[in-house]
Write a protein that binds this DNA or RNA. Structure first.
Lengths: 235, 235
DNA sequence: TGTACATCAGTGAACGCGCGTTCACTGATGTAC
DNA sequence: TGTACATCAGTGAACGCGCGTTCACTGATGTAC
């Protein structure tokens, strides 16, 4: 993981997609869903880029695509629906990355380390998306409210993964305590990502060192073992 | 700590301070600073109450006090300066509460437990303020940027407090590792407050149980000891 | 003791802006006869 | 093979709103002479 890079600030300049030249051609007949995909891409890009993603506007998305604001209504009832769609995609992406990071794991510790590392790396790599998903009121209304429940899936997998390390044969503790331990691990990961993203000016140690200590505390394993697994799991 | 109470939602109804009756009397001659104090109080109340405190507007503050929007400019150059002032007060309040919670502590463990409990209780008691202080970009610009540095004070005290438990005679570890451990404790506390405030719909265990486990992990002490200290430290 | 003046603590109207949303429309393309 | 029509994929102008900020002003109160 790189020591610390500025998260591509550029708040107020959406890069002016096509200023005056090439004023976007209307899609041909059966291709209405092309704009839909472009709107999703543009909203995703803006949510990832803006450092206050909650203030994304419908007109910003329209400008980014190069389309009239009214055109969005042909594809989404309002901006909320578009953002909700993007968040669902991001959520699925994160859950998939975590599962993929865990799948090749040769043992339970590597599994939980893989999941945690995937979570933290995704979070610090896309601060805007992370903030939109987990930073405030949005997720409750958009994700859980949409009867999707990827949040509980993600957390459930983490709980199981942690329990497999701390209580391999599930005899030492109760499901309630496993849940509580997994929840606590999640809050720790969230706190790390969230403060790291928001307070870049502080003197942060390398993220992998913090992550190794963090996982070490929650699993009861030596941080050195975790560090080795983290290093082997880097791209 | 109470099991879980709704954080006084009421987003769009600032309680209509004085609808038509009693239209606020101008302050007498030397009392110009009275409005200043009222503006600070109103901004503090709104920041604490709104569940998206970052979208506070100058006109909302003016309405809350019952004053013309332009009147604010006599006391603050803009809304940012007013918010900055409020945040500084809240920050000092939090730091003071943490110190007070630690002061009567008979031993290092009670000291760190007192500090953590004060932090978490303040955070879940005033979600809006917590979010404004620690939830995003604001603190960096407003607090640290204002050459105040209460953030580092708060964190520094926590680092020292934790080190007094894990390394009483400061021989087992280095200042760098103490710093890293304290920082990790802070991120854990932040993650707990932040997710608890933002995801009230999840099945949360009692906050004190989570806090006891959390401090237990970071100090290496039994959670039962922490629980006892937490219970004795309640109001 | 009276009075002109200065100052204080705001007010009220106006500005220009970006916003979400609506509505009638437009022009290209496919399809029925 | 031609032509009227339907549909698709948007457009462009307008609306009303709340916002930050400005500017000339107002009315009460203190102060100098």
């Amino acid at each position: 993981m790189s020591p610390r890079e500025q998260p591509a600030a550029s708040q107020e300049q959406p890069s002016a997609p096509q200023e005056q030249a090439a004023p976007r051609r209307r899609n041909p007949r059966g291709q209405g869903q092309v704009l839909r995909a472009q709107l999703i891409d543009a909203a995703a890009k803006l949510l990832a880029t803006l450092d206050q993603p909650e203030s994304l506007t419908l007109r910003q998305v329209a400008r980014e695509v190069g389309v009239a604001p009214a055109s969005i209504y042909s594809h989404f009832p309002d901006l909320g629906a578009l953002v909700q769609h993007v968040l669902r995609l991001r959520y699925e992406e994160l859950a998939r990355l975590m599962d993929q990071a865990a799948r090749p794991a040769p043992d339970p510790l590597a599994d939980v380390v893989g999941r945690c590392a995937a979570y933290v790396r995704w979070g610090v790599g896309q601060p805007g998306h992370y903030r939109t998903l987990f930073g405030g009121r949005m997720p409750t209304e958009l994700i859980t409210g949409s009867a999707h429940g990827a949040g509980e899936e993600l957390l459930g997998a983490l709980v199981a993964s942690l329990a497999a390390v701390t209580d391999p044969d599930r005899t030492r503790s109760t499901p309630e305590r496993h849940w509580q331990a997994g929840l606590l691990l999640w809050t720790a990961l969230h706190g790390l990502v969230s403060l790291y993203n928001g307070h870049g000016d502080m003197p942060w140690p390398p993220l992998d060192d913090l992550l190794a200590d963090l996982i070490g505390l929650h699993t009861g394993r030596p941080a050195a073992d975790i560090s080795a697994l983290l290093a082997s799991g880097e791209d």
